[in-house]
Nucleic acid binder design. Structure first.
Lengths: 350, 350
DNA sequence: CCTTAAATAGACAACATTGTCAATCGCGCA
DNA sequence: TGCGCGATTGACAATGTTGTCTATTTAAGG
């Protein structure tokens, strides 16, 4: 009839009181150990930790939030048409948040909905969130930034492109990554490399183009305006732009699209003309979207550490919230060049 | 110097006490109104509601969870390789949960990790979750089902394919949807319709094939074994299977793939042969993945109401949790035939 | 008018945790 | 010995909400 063992621990949740009783200390002392506060003797600390271990105790977030100012909850708002990008953000943030004993709440917002700032204020105040993570394009929206600044809680911005001093920025060096991809193509022997730009007017678009130009310059290849087409990040624009490039008398042997969706369009355009990838034309993308590996042929691209950026953002917000003295310099994470089968040596004769 | 107005309400969160004071009732009465409990006069109810409105009051989830057995939190666990599917689930569940004043926590799990059941038990017990939503493939995993049954909390399964009496099921009629797509092709004049099956051994695969066969039979078209290929839901298999179909002496004029990824492969296979879609061959998919509309040409497919299924699951779990007497019959939601440009009239002469 | 029951409303405890403040202990020093 | 001080520990209040129980009001029936 002894049921206090395995079954019970499975079904009932142990509380700080249970731990205190087992370790024969007060609940406050347990709290001190859990929160890693000072003024607990090493001996007591050990005993408490053993009890925690034995009972598999984890503090209850809701109870924690009732007292004090912290709520142990972080918010992630987004309005990004790309589900796999946003999903990666969620995964990354969730993992980091869990490590720290926090919880994540997320909320889709409409960028063009009015009252965007008010919506964020509402979310943060009602949810009593300790901090917020804001990916693009919301992280560059003036009303969002205004609301966040007023709230006086830490917030992190993923890949911000303006007002870089506001909040804590986590980004990737778009320019360097684009340059690396361009170098990769040059090393394969390509000299005429077409470039498909992203949506006009975004910092991302500018940075990637700059990287492309810098790598060309470094290799002593003259920049040719005719090889640059204006896309808009959608697949269709990739198809149209690639068609234009392939129609040139002096056709490029490689096409570098500013994102994977447009690269997918380029792949179709090339193959519709009966040309082979990468035998006749190499194609490269940017993002390493979930679809990149599934394309035909699998796409060479730049992996953005999306999940890692979100995780870093979450950790930094928590860190700041623990110790507001901490310096929160913005951070740049590394990209990764993912070489698959859509790029290869330039054709021998042209 | 009067600061009690707009600014203050923005930055401070109003509590049940504020509302009670303003409406000149006890906090318990406010609680009754909010929880829609009986025994409050219509007059009082109105006054309280007005106060709630004025102060923009929303109950604090953490405070709620401390008392009583409810935690007002639902869990969503998943292990699905398809980010956009999972993302849709998250969006749908989050929206439903928010409507009901609940919160959603999600957790990626490794299907083949050992201790899957233990992991779920841990998650639910530690998080004190009121219920769980389990999409495929986890919803058919025996250890997951075992753990959930033991926990004694309501759980909903998205598109389950076995043990249908366990938990609350939310699904879509795969067979009817596949039949509808097949009818669509028949109405366009197609008589030889190739079919690419999904991964062997899954209920989904069987159901979709059955729908295809039934629609053929209903139209008096004989079933031809040669027109059915075995795929595995991956794009590459779609490409290979379509190649096989197109190599037939009596080539099909339409190809129906059991999901969009394989349809993408089929699109490539057709166009690589210099054939036009849909002029020479129509191609249809299943799922309405995010990529479907971005393919070339945009893919005719079946829209699965993924977000809606998750929302229904969430609502049902909450409903049950509010009133355990409620009957929770499983539910089937409607699919939608999305006709885009990859299907068209069968070629006149073959 | 009195009794009884139902409807309505409030007082107070309970929840799991943290913050504040007080109590105790050990130790060095006069 | 007595005193002061820092380190350690605990008692208790507070957090925002719901459950339980009790008190008051209203309505109905004699």
């Amino acid at each position: 009839m002894s049921d206090g063992e395995s079954l019970d621990t499975q079904v009932r949740r142990s509380t700080i009181t249970d731990v205190a009783r087992l370790a024969d200390v007060s609940i406050k002392t347990v709290s001190r150990v859990v929160r890693q506060e000072p003024n607990v003797s090493e001996e007591t600390r050990k005993a408490v930790r053993a009890a925690i271990e034995q009972l598999n105790y984890r503090p209850t977030i809701s109870a924690r939030s009732t007292t004090g100012s912290r709520s142990f909850m972080l918010g992630l708002v987004f309005d990004n048409p790309n589900p796999s990008y946003t999903f990666d953000l969620l995964i990354g943030a969730q993992q980091a948040v869990k490590e720290q004993g926090y919880q994540l709440v997320f909320e889709p917002l409409e960028r063009n909905g009015k009252g965007l700032g008010a919506a964020i204020t509402q979310l943060v105040v009602q949810g009593n969130l300790d901090g917020v993570i804001v990916p693009p394009p919301l992280c560059d929206d003036p009303s969002v930034l205004g609301a966040l600044s007023k709230l006086g809680r830490p917030f992190a911005r993923i890949a911000p492109s303006r007002e870089l001093t506001l909040g804590f920025g986590v980004s990737m060096d778009d320019g360097a990554a684009a340059a690396a991809m361009t170098r990769h193509l040059i090393e394969l022997g390509h000299r005429r490399i077409g470039f498909i730009k992203g949506r006009a007017g975004t910092a991302t678009t500018e940075n990637r183009l700059r990287g492309y130009r810098e790598a060309l310059a470094a290799a002593g290849i003259p920049f040719d305006e005719a090889l640059v087409q204006q896309g808009d990040f959608q697949m269709r624009s990739g198809l149209v732009c690639a068609d234009a490039l392939l129609a040139l008398a002096d056709m490029p042997t490689a096409i570098f699209a500013s994102n994977d969706d447009m690269a997918a369009g380029a792949l179709i355009a090339v193959q519709r003309r009966g040309l082979h990838v990468p035998g006749d034309v190499s194609v490269a993308g940017f993002d390493d979207a979930a679809t990149a590996a599934a394309m035909w042929p699998p796409l060479t691209t730049i992996r953005q550490p999306v999940a890692e950026m979100a995780a870093t953002a979450a950790r930094k917000v928590i860190e700041y919230q623990r110790d507001p003295e901490a310096t929160l310099d913005s951070v740049q994470l590394d990209y990764e060049l993912v070489v698959r089968e859509s790029t290869g040596a330039a054709p021998q004769r042209r």
